[in-house]
Amino acid sequence: MSDAALPDRRVPSSGTPRLRIALVTNTYPPRMGGLELHIANLAHNLSDLGHRIWVLTIASEPSKRMDGDIRVRTERSYLPIADVISFPAIGTTSAIARFLREHSIDVVSTHTRFFPMSFVGLRAAHAARVPVIHTEHGSGFVATPSAPIAVGSRVVDLSMGRYVLRHADRVLAVSPQAAAFAQRLGARHADVFYNAITPSQHTGPIEDRPAHLVFVGRMVAGKGWETFLDAVAALRSRGIAATGEMIGDGAQLGAAHERCEALGLSEVVDVRGRVPQGEVRSALRGSTLVNPTTLSEGFQTTLLEAISEQGRVVTFDVPGAQLLRDQGAPITVCPSKTTDSLVAGLTEALSTPLPQASTDLIQEWTWPVRARQYESIALEVISRYAQQ
């Protein structure tokens, strides 16, 4: 049986046509990060609304599998660069265009302008006369200490990335900063489509432990893992009994272990590496998320996950942080991106912990709400495309 013939298991929302949606992306779980979580949650929540979803992606090993009700087709990737970007095989555009026609796809969803599969997906979709919704996740050019990667990524942004943003039928962006960047780079217009999270699965009382500090992110330059450790050391030198844990893998994980030991924090900070998503939520529960990134981030879902788990956040100024604070979330935004500013923000946050977030605030930032918004956008895009 082909995947086109697989039975539908969901009932579409009342009065809404059942859509056939293909998400074309460079990366998808089991690879894990903010982008992968966004795409997977979007796929599953659209499926929950009754739509049929395919994910077309690339990885080191090709496969065809089911991820719940999501049909995932993985082709082989080539020429990996810095464990971030890789390329599909020659002929992938034609193969995807043929797939879209054979499966009567209604709309294609692409993500992040500099990934080759966004360019390939858009070209294939238009060859098959299918509209494209592109979601931009970055709020600026790639921030990296590597000059070759910085130059190369900017060249990609100003060529392939600009093409994607100019030719997509609708451009969404996960924050106002990402929308402004997309428009500077070439999008005619970009609508804000905020990131979201799955609702907390925890029931029962939560231990309030604001002095337990949590870092979540890849152990790479710019994410701020060194700043996190330096801040914990500074707090403890001032007599503040802070503890911590660091969650995430990456090329500098070994260096994180070494710095933790050098600062005398091995007994109070657990450098855990990569853990399942459920354990990330458990770590954030009642804790304080520390977010000292200096990269060009999109809207980081860890901010939402922390407040959803009745925790608090101390962060550098990143997309979404001030918005959430203005809505009443317990977020402290540091005035500058320095260790001293972070230590000052943490000292304030720990001396007078902010009230935990309300259930109503959190509900508006969950995927069931966001998927219905995407459904409405998709229906509008399909209708307008048919009238052209």
Rank of each mutant, 00 (worst) to 15 (best):
N45C: 08
D106R: 01
S2I: 06
V156Y: 02
A128N: 03
T339C: 13
T366F: 04
I307F: 03
D208C: 13
S139Q: 06
V232C: 06
E258F: 09
R71F: 13
I58W: 00
I81T: 13
R123G: 02
Y194C: 10
R129P: 01
I149K: 12
E375F: 03
T25H: 06
T57C: 11
A187D: 02
S308K: 12
S60E: 15
V171S: 00
D48R: 12
Y28V: 01
I331L: 14
S47Q: 05
P12R: 05
P116D: 05
T112W: 10
F119V: 08
M219I: 05
A124W: 02
G138K: 04
E297M: 09
L346Y: 01
T293S: 15
E364L: 14
S175M: 05
P80Y: 07
H51Y: 03
V155G: 09
I206W: 04
Q363S: 14
T110R: 02
A82R: 15
L284N: 07
F141E: 12
A168T: 03
L342C: 04
R384S: 11
D157T: 10
I331N: 00
Q310L: 12
L122Y: 00
P330R: 02
S47T: 10
A168I: 04
T293Q: 08
W365I: 00
F215P: 13
S139E: 09
H134N: 08
T293K: 12
A178W: 04
T288Y: 05
I240P: 11
H212I: 09
T112S: 10
I96H: 03
P12I: 01
E207A: 15
A378S: 10
A180Y: 08
V11W: 10
H189S: 15
G328V: 01
P353Q: 07
H103Y: 12
L361H: 02
S376G: 12
S358K: 09
V220Q: 09
P199G: 08
S13C: 13
T332A: 08
R370K: 15
V11F: 09
Y374E: 00
R101F: 07
T74D: 05
A4H: 11
S358W: 05
E102G: 01
P330S: 06
G311K: 01
F119S: 11
A262P: 00
K337V: 10
L265A: 00
F119E: 09
A306G: 04
R274G: 10
E102S: 13
S336A: 14
W367G: 00
G15T: 01
Q183N: 09
S159A: 14
G278Y: 11
A306D: 05
I21W: 00
I133L: 13
D83H: 15
R76C: 08
K337Q: 15
L324R: 02
R98V: 13
A256P: 03
C334D: 06
R218L: 07
S139F: 02
H103G: 08
H126S: 06
I362V: 15
W54F: 08
L324H: 03
S175G: 12
A187H: 01
L354P: 07
L284Q: 05
I96Y: 05
S296K: 08
F193W: 14
R73L: 15
G50F: 00
R384L: 11
G140N: 07
A43I: 02
S2G: 11
S287V: 02
